[in-house]
Design a protein around this nucleic acid. Structure first.
Length: 648
RNA sequence: GCUGCUGUAGCUCAGAGGUAGAGCACUCCCUUGGUAAGGGAGAGGUCGAGAGUUCAAUUCUCUCCAGCAGCACCA
């Protein structure tokens, strides 16, 4: 038997027979480790204790203390245990796939009857039974023909299809949890009893397309969460409850920011408080863009079909457009228009007026552009995904050589904006060439490289989303996360050589000839609607003072202070602070509670003492203590806090 | 758009085949109270829309609309 050398994390190496399993290695080290071992990492790969190690390798044995590996195994085993439970309860159910995801797993089933919420309880109970049985987990490697035959015999067509889709003809790994079998890459635990029976929970049932293809069968997906211990599960569930309180839809109501109603699905009715945030943000963005060399324009909402035909949207985007037909009786001729779903074609129209010189490039054109898109009904989400929205849009007309430096400039600009708005964590994704695309490989190489080096030059890292680019060019996505961890693309930067071509944009070069500019689509916030939604969730409604729609409430403690309250409000307003009086006949406790719930950052309470001393009692949102300050000091302090960061 | 669920007062929700309730919010009165809900009274609803079954439907059935979760979509 050949010998192999295994190197442990501490640097020591031991010699074993080739084909030894990590379970045997653990047993060789100590009986206690053999008991506690759950898996191994062999040459960087997560390795089942039962898999033989063929050659020299590095090895680390894992126990439940290794959170990452333990979670993966627990969740993966639970996926199998859940599928087994479902098939034991409803034997006609067909199984498909069940991967580990963040915090848990899901498994997709094909079953005629829909699962009900009550079924989740049944399944959980059955899962606990399986865990208590401590059934052995076994694995074998089968050749494809045998596996296909097996699944055909067992009437599991989805598994057959999965095998067919696995490239090459390498053998397949099979796993058993007791008598229940699944096709699986592994690794897994050694018996079902290793899964903590009190640290998982089935969360929800939802539809999901087989293989993510909306033309195919809709399956039923069950989601679960699982952790290494029940305290961790509890902490996770508590976190979800807390996150729900930050939901912008809930806070939007509580802070009286906006509403939406049935008659205008996907459209926002902004209330005074919400609109205050919106305009404050817009004023800030306008100043920032002015300072960064943008020229601002404004273009029409309703544009003839003819332009959309030229731009290609009529052909490729029509189902997402609001088509506007003018009534024949009132129009000279029947005209078909569409509400603009994006601003780019209009910006090219502005660019195309008059001759442009290479000296004009890069030309940074911005618009707070209102767009309307007929989004699929199921896609809408509060104000984060809507049908009517305003982008902080901009298009940079430039040459190929300018792309990298424009990218760098834009990323730095965006980073400053996000920082000013209180976002520490955001991610950049680079989406590369998709399968269906236009343009040469060479131009894609250049474009992708220009974006990549532009981000690096600005000092940021990025992830790559293979094949996720637009058909005309690669793009950057700047992603923020909402209260419950869903990603939202906010900023974007896309290289587009296509639209300038279609709409015949050109400039005169140094050589006196006409040239085609490139167009960079870019947005920093993305849309005011989505960004404000994210902003609310990020700050749990407690916006930075300068952005807060209501900044200060001056509340009287007794009616004798009413005149002074009004004077304080006047003083603050004169200093540029959004202040309002609350001289209602209510107790100070009541007023403090109400304005705290309404997320007003500062409450100034005044009673007889403050009137006498010309002071105010300052209470900041989220703080218990109050302090008494002179009116002059507080006014100066709040005036500074109310100043947008770019004006400080 | 697809699967499932939901729709009752401004908000959060209860309710039953016989015509609707609570708490908070709102209005008025009493209370002038020192930092997260003082007390009392009052007003408020075509029970998402339409059709069907029934002596009778807000309740049961169907269709539509909207929302929620997930999937798909997001040049």
């Amino acid at each position: 038997m050949a010998q192999i050398s295994l190197t442990f994390p501490d640097g020591n190496a031991r010699s074993y027979d080739a084909g030894i399993t990590p379970a045997q290695v653990a047993a060789d080290i100590s009986t206690s480790l053999a008991k506690k071992a759950i898996s191994a990492t062999v040459d960087g790969k997560h390795w089942d204790l039962q898999w033989p190690i063929p050659a020299d390798a590095s090895i680390a044995i894992h126990t439940m203390q290794d959170e990452a590996q333990a979670n993966e195994l627990i969740r993966h085993d639970l996926a199998h245990i859940m599928a087994r439970a479902v098939q034991e309860i409803w034997p006609a159910t067909k199984v498909t796939i069940g991967p580990v995801i963040e915090n848990g797993w899901y498994y997709d089933f094909d079953r005629a009857e829909p699962f009900t919420p009550e079924d989740l309880g049944l399944i959980e109970k059955k899962m606990k039974e399986i865990i208590n049985k401590r059934d052995e987990v076994r694995t074998e490697v089968w050749d494809r023909a045998r596996a296909i035959q097996y699944y055909t015999d067992n009437n599991e067509p989805y598994k057959v299809e999965l095998i067919d889709a696995i490239p090459g003809d390498e053998p397949l790994r099979m796993y058993w949890h007791g008598d229940w079998q699944d096709l699986c890459r592994g690794p897994h635990l050694q018996h079902t009893g290793q899964v903590p029976g009190d640290a998982f929970k089935l969360m929800s049932i939802a539809g999901a397309y087989w293989r993510g293809d909306s033309n195919r069968q809709m399956l039923q997906r069950i989601y679960g969460v699982a952790f290494t211990g029940k305290e961790k599960l509890k902490a996770h569930l508590t976190m979800l409850e807390e996150a729900a309180k930050r939901d912008h839809r809930k806070l939007g109501r509580e802070m009286n920011l906006f509403h939406m109603q049935e008659e205008a699905p996907g459209m926002v009715f902004w209330h005074p408080n919400g609109w205050r945030i919106y305009t404050t943000l817009q004023d800030y963005m306008r100043r920032m863009q002015d300072r960064n060399g943008y020229v601002e324009v404004n273009t029409p909402q309703v544009v003839s079909r003819k332009l959309w035909e030229k731009s290609g949207h009529w052909e490729n985007y029509q189902e997402n457009m609001f088509i506007v037909e003018v009534d024949e009786d009132h129009a000279r001729e029947k005209a078909v228009n569409a509400l603009k779903p994006m601003n780019c074609p209009c910006h090219i129209q502005v660019f195309n007026q008059g001759l442009k010189s290479y000296r004009d490039l890069p030309l940074r054109m911005a618009e707070f552009g209102s767009c309307n898109r007929y989004e699929p009904s199921g896609a809408m989400h509060g104000i984060m995904r809507v049908r009517g929205f305003t982008q902080d849009d901009g298009h940079i007309f430039c040459t190929e050589d300018q792309v990298e430096s424009e990218t760098k400039t834009f990323v730095s600009f965006l980073a400053q904006v996000y920082k000013d708005l209180g976002f520490e964590k955001w991610r950049v994704k680079l989406s590369t060439r998709p399968e269906k695309r236009v343009g040469t490989e060479e131009s894609w190489d250049k474009a992708e490289a220009a974006l990549a080096s532009g981000i690096k030059a600005a000092g940021y890292d990025f992830e790559i989303q293979e094949g996720e680019g637009a058909f005309y060019g690669p793009k950057l996505e700047f992603v923020l996360t909402d209260a419950i961890g869903r990603d939202w693309q906010c900023g974007t930067l896309q290289i587009d050589p296509n639209l300038p071509e279609r709409l015949d944009a050109s400039y005169i070069g140094a050589d006196g000839d006409k040239h085609r500019p490139l167009m960079l689509h870019r947005a920093t916030l993305g849309s005011f609607e989505r960004f404000i939604g994210i902003l609310i969730e990020e700050h749990a409604g407690k916006l930075p003072f300068w952005l807060a729609p209501r900044q200060v409430v001056v509340a009287s403690i007794t009616s004798e202070a009413d005149d002074y309250v009004n004077e304080v409000v006047e003083t603050l307003r004169a200093a540029g602070v959004r202040a309002e009086a609350d001289i209602r006949n209510e107790k100070i406790n009541y007023k403090v509670r109400e304005h705290s719930v309404g997320k007003v950052p500062v409450i100034l309470a005044v009673g007889a003492r403050e009137v006498e001393e010309r002071t105010v009692s300052v209470r900041r949102l989220g703080e218990k203590e109050t302090r008494v300050e002179s009116l002059a000091n507080v006014t100066a302090e709040l005036a500074t806090a109310a100043t947008p960061p770019d004006l400080l």
